[in-house]
Design a protein around this nucleic acid. Structure first.
Lengths: 329, 329
DNA sequence: TTGAAAGCGGTACCAC
DNA sequence: GTGGTACCGCTTTCAA
């Protein structure tokens, strides 16, 4: 592959001159410019950004770590991130941990070797190893989805506690007296713990009894259906359920229908996220719309501020949500 | 940031020795190894991959260009790509063109400057400028979603012609006599042209009349609903419709219901893709399941083969699909 | 077993 | 206006 040196030889000038032409610097005679441009064309020269990055000690690179791409929260978040970074002339390295433990940490190290200027990570959980890895990282890290601000890691999160609280209020307002929670594994603070706590505390405040149940399934329609089927078979008969995600809620609705009960009437159902699916199921799923793409663009802005100013004014950004009432509650 | 040189000074050895220790090479005395490792620890040295890449003239980098991430086809495809590349120790640069014309071409050039070893592109259309840019690219390019094999560009596509053909057969088998097509803009060869042609030719072969209509909307539920509403208002009364995508089909179903007709009975509806939404709408949407993640992993394998062998055995990979019958047809 | 030095492809300072 | 040269951080002979 042709280098500056080759171009210089071909044009009969020095590397310095070629460099000047390429970078549109002042003080090069028009005639030489033309010579050089012809030489560039002739040998198909393409700038070597690797060499430039080394020399300038700057990569304009941002690393993004995701557990998987094919999820509403992540794919929309990545769109928000990449658009914002693109505007700031940053380029994006994408790493997919595939939910394998330890992979995120490897990627943080790899990204530091690649001299990224910052890292955005979609977190599914937080543990000590991860925190240590983030602390060791030269490149600043911003978290999306889980709150790391307690460990001094800037984070963009959704208002998971309050969404649980509001869910209880909505179910109560709809006349429910006996309710439960379909959650996920408990090390997911944002999705399970926070939403459950908000829900539970609101029930308490309202004067209803604590949740009848708190299942711990997966992030899928199937899992929601199975958990709900099991509960109904167990003779659990709530009049309202709050589901940690819309997919779980949709599965629950299917189970309710399969038991010859009417979701939205016999049992009210509330989800979280406002997945597009929520708008097409029957009955329509009442849910809380989360701002997934803004989560990405805000995280990007925070990270850019940290990169440019050395620190961010905001330690934690909590995004609001909107209640989207449909037929299920 | 500490460099080899700093470590060497701290350990009282030469850069060469430090390099040997870092890369686990033979012939370094145990005692020196220990000295060096302590020095590395002490100054928090992290390998500079940029310098390594320059020196070795190898980046292990792959560029991926997408129109957006938040789409079923793309997000699943990217999962397939990133998993396969990860296994081959390649890293992924992600560029989001945001559907802006010309952006893809800029990214191809940028990726070449960054010395990526190959590029995968999710194409929404193909034009001369794009083909020229791909031809000029040093890094080999593999297309996903549109067929560039006619221009000698390796491509992974779905069997869009045949899906149209099968859709006609399914509608016919379900008793339809008068059918139409809800498409997208016609420069989308794969999604509009191919599916329509297969559909139309099958009708002809079967002995039914050609499609009553061929609309050109967007890739959205709303667009599908609007087009179908307009058709029904126009006194079009097909007994079957084939929709270029599941979202369009879901919109159409909504419009049919809003007109007090029964989708799946008065008007049969068939989609393409097997979006998860198709399984949760009522009536369930009959559709063809596309292999989005395999599209990604196969494209990755093709690209890796080209990078390693210099060329690929396969010029074009056509992925099959499965008929997923539900209530809408 | 270790070190000195050249070079990867650029940039930038200093001469001429 | 243009060229020579040192250097960014690493690897890799070649010598010692």
């Amino acid at each position: 592959m042709a280098s500056l040196h080759d171009v210089a030889r071909l044009a009969g000038v020095s590397k310095s001159t070629v460099s000047r032409v390429i970078n549109d610097e002042y003080g090069v005679k028009e005639a030489t410019k033309i010579k050089v441009r012809r030489a560039i064309e002739e040998c198909g020269y393409v700038v070597n950004q690797v060499a430039k990055d080394l020399k300038s000690n700057k990569t304009n690179l941002i690393g993004i770590i995701v557990p998987r791409v094919a999820s509403n929260a992540v794919s929309q978040g990545v769109d928000g991130l990449s658009k914002t970074f693109e505007q700031a002339s940053k380029h994006v390295l994408l790493a997919n941990s595939g939910l394998e433990a330890g992979k995120e940490i490897q990627y943080i190290e790899l990204f530091n070797q690649k001299r990224v200027e910052g890292i955005v990570m979609f977190a599914t959980h937080i543990d000590d190893a991860l925190i240590t890895a983030i602390k060791r990282s030269r490149a600043p890290v911003v978290l999306i989805g889980q709150d790391g601000s307690g460990y001094n890691i800037p984070s963009v999160i959704h208002d998971d506690y309050r969404v649980g609280y509001c869910a209880a209020e909505q179910l109560h307002r709809a006349g429910c007296r006996s309710v439960g929670f379909l959650g996920v594994k408990s090390d997911d603070i944002a999705v399970d713990r926070q939403r459950y706590d908000g829900f539970s505390n609101a029930l308490n405040y309202i004067g209803l009894s604590t949740p009848q149940f708190h299942t711990q399934g997966q992030f899928s329609i199937d899992s929601g259906r199975e958990e709900m089927t099991r509960l109904l078979a167990d003779n659990q008969r709530p009049d309202g359920i709050f589901c940690a995600t819309d997919r779980i809620a949709i599965g629950a609705i299917q189970a309710i229908i399969a038991s010859d009960l009417k979701p939205g009437k016999d049992i009210k159902v509330v989800g979280v996220g406002n997945d597009e699916m929520a708008s097409v199921v029957t009955p329509g799923l009442s849910t809380f719309a989360y701002a997934f793409e803004p989560a990405g663009s805000n995280a990007a802005k925070m990270l850019l501020e940290i990169i440019e100013q050395g620190r961010s004014q905001v330690a934690k950004l909590v995004l609001g949500f909107d209640w989207v009432p449909r037929q299920s509650c």
